[in-house]
Amino acid sequence: MNVTSRQGRTQALFRVYGILGYLFLYLPVFLLMFFSFNKSSAGSLPFTGFTLKWYQDLFADRLVIDAFWNSLRVAVLTSLVSTVIGTIAAFPMARLSFRFKEALRILFILPIMVPGLLIGISLLIFFASWLDIRLSLATVVIGHVVFTTPFVLLVVTARLLDFNYLLEWAAADLGATPFNTFRYVTFPLISPGVLAGALFAFTLSLDEFIITFFTIGPQSTLPMYIFSQVKFGITPKINALATLLFMGSILILCTFFYTLSRRGQART
C-alpha cells in the first residue's frame, strides 16, 4: 500500500476525531448561546427569529441584578482572600524543609479532591451547629476560600520553585530590607503565578454551586438563581445569562494570557 496515502488517511481520521471532540465540548454551549437570541420562548428549534428580548428581560430583573452583584462580591473577596493565604502558604512549601511537609501539603490540597457536597455539608454543620452564626455571603466566601486556596497554592508554589533564590540574596546584598526584596524582586517575578491563582479562584468561585447552596443565607448568587429558575423549566433568559457568564469567563482568560505573553516578551 502507498505509504503517503496511508499517512493521509490517518491524518484525516485524526482530524475528524479532533473535530468531534471539540464539537462534543462546545456544541452544547453554542446551542445555548444560539437560543438566547431566539424569539420562541421554548428554548429549542425551530428558530423563529432574532431578538435581544431575553437580554432586556435579564437586565430588568431585580433578582438577576442582585444575584450578579452578590456573585461578583463573593468572587472578588474569595479571590483576594485565597490569593493572600495561598501565596503566603506557598513560601514555606517551596522554600523550607520541615517534618511532615509532604503530609501538610497533601492536607492543604485535599479540598480539590474532596467532593463539594462534603465540604458544603460539613461547613453548614460547622457554621450552624457549632459556631451558631447566621449564614450569609460571608459564610459563602469562607466556603469558597476552602476549595480555591489549594489552586492558588499549587500555582504559586510552582512559580516559586522556578525562582532563583540568589536573586533575593542579590537584593539583600544591595541593601534591600526583606520587605523591599519582596516588593521589588520576589513579587514582580512571581506575580504572573499569583495573578493566575487569583483568576483561577475568581472563576471557580463565580460559578460554584454546591458549597454555595449549603452555606448561603437569604441572598442569591447567579448559579443559585439559575438553579431556582431551572426548576420551573428553562427559559431563554437563562440562556442569555449563561451566555454572558461564558463571555465573561472567556474575557478574563484572554486578558490573563495577553498580559502574561506581554510580560514574557518584555523579559526576553
Binding site: 532563583n164 536573586l167 540574596w169 542579590a170 534591600a176 530590607t177 517575578l189
Partner: peptide, 20 residues
C-alpha cells in the same frame, strides 16, 4: 548582621541579575 547592613557587595556565580 544581615547582608543589607554590611557594606559588602557580591558578584554572584551566575550573576543573579534581576531579569525584570
Amino acid at each position: 548582621d544581615p547582608p543589607y547592613r554590611r557594606n559588602v557587595n557580591t558578584v554572584f556565580q551566575n550573576y543573579a541579575l534581576f531579569p525584570h
